[in-house]
Amino acid sequence: MILFICALFTVAVLFYVFYMPGELLIAPEKTRVAYLRERKDVVYENLRDLNFEYKAGKLPEVDYQSMKASLEEEAASVLAEISRLERITASSPPAERKGMRV
């Protein structure tokens, strides 16, 4: 009985681990654009926080303007890079695009 339970459990486990009929569904690897989008979200969130802190009276006008300008600059750079990479993807032929990770 014990032997049977152990054998059954082992077969079930091995079946689960190694039996993969058909094509494997794998999540696509992240592209550089995806990483840039994450960065964009972070910069936007920082901008939102900065605006909120300013409205809550925690920042003087001068500091707020300089920090806002610096964050906007960063956001602009990220957006520019995203649109550049998207243009490259859009302009490349479909066959080439398939194997490309941007």
Binding site: L47, N51, E73, E81, R84
Partner: peptide, 13 residues
Amino acid sequence: PAPVRVQAAPVGA
């Protein structure tokens, strides 16, 4: 929160 100026500069992200 506000519109941003787009510049053509790459970023390290």
